[in-house]
């Protein structure tokens, strides 16, 4: 029998809620003690449950068998219900599906895909709706690289987002303010990093961020992040690597000879 659903996740820990991430959050909270709260954009690793059928009985059976396995790591974890593979006219009743998940100690927090009715139903059940991958991610016309990573030979400009879902991301150019680069692995910027860089977005703690000149708005590795105001200013403009050590995001100057191609090479004439 074909699997009725498929649960995929790289890491179960939603880092921002995890105890180790609290230190960053607390530190941030102390700084803004006058404010009641603050919203922060972040990439959390979260389990996605992909539905291959609308048949609730089959879904329930599959969940029951899957979760009997004591090594099932995703119980009690937040879950995104992904219905992108189902034809929109054939959606399972969302309330029944949510109840089914809860019986098996899974906690749906949002849906992805589905039709208009599903979205309305999600809202009334207190679930969020996540834009489908295609809508959310502007196409980057970069050439896929053999190692599942991505090499992009251009400047990433304000409003653009480049995403390497499986491996490293190499940018031969700068990442400008207002741009965002994300990778499952490490990020290498052979230029100035002025925008936001999020490495290890599926939870890889070993991922790093390298850049020739550091001027980032935000740096994140596996959900641990720092905003511009949190970095030491002496590192600005220097070649820097960012890495995780004991859940702390650290920045260190890269000891490389500074190359200076010079801006004049951009002049026509």
């Amino acid at each position: 029998m074909e699997a009725a659903l498929h649960t995929k996740s790289a890491k179960q820990t939603p880092c921002i809620l995890g105890s180790d991430a609290m230190s960053t959050t607390q530190a941030a909270m102390m700084k803004v003690s006058q404010q009641a709260l603050r919203f922060k954009g972040t990439m959390l690793p979260v389990t996605v449950m992909e539905l291959f059928t609308a048949d609730l009985v089959a879904l329930e059976q599959h969940l029951a068998s899957k979760l009997q396995d004591p090594s099932a790591f995703f119980t009690r974890s937040p879950l995104v219900l992904n219905a992108e593979r189902l034809p929109p006219e054939l959606m399972p009743d969302l309330a029944a599906l949510v109840a089914c998940c809860q019986r098996h100690e899974l906690l749906p927090i949002a849906v992805r895909g589905g039709n208009h009715v599903w979205r309305e139903q999600a809202w009334s059940l207190g679930l969020g709706w996540i834009d489908t991958q295609d809508n959310a991610r502007p196409q980057n016309k970069a050439v896929p690289h053999a190692g599942a990573g991505l090499i992009v030979e251009r400047t990433i400009r304000s409003g653009q987002q480049v995403w390497s879902p499986k491996g490293d991301l190499v940018i031969l150019g700068s990442v400008n303010e207002g741009a965002e680069v994300l990778a499952a692995g490490s990020i290498h910027v052979y230029g100035t990093l002025r925008g936001r860089a999020l490495a290890g977005i599926h939870g890889d703690h070993k991922a790093r961020i390298f850049c020739m000149q550091m001027d980032a708005e935000l740096l994140a590795i596996a959900g641990n992040y720092k905003m511009a105001e949190d970095f030491a200013s002496p590192l600005r403009g220097k070649p820097v690597q960012t890495y995780l050590e004991a859940e702390r995001l650290l920045l260190a100057e890269l000891q490389l000879p500074t190359s200076n191609g010079g801006w004049r090479s951009w002049l026509q004439a």
Partner: peptide
């Protein structure tokens, strides 16, 4: 400069 950067992105896409 920032708005020009945004426009350059749109010119390319």
């Amino acid at each position: 400069v920032r708005d020009s950067d945004r426009i350059l992105g749109l010119l390319n896409s």
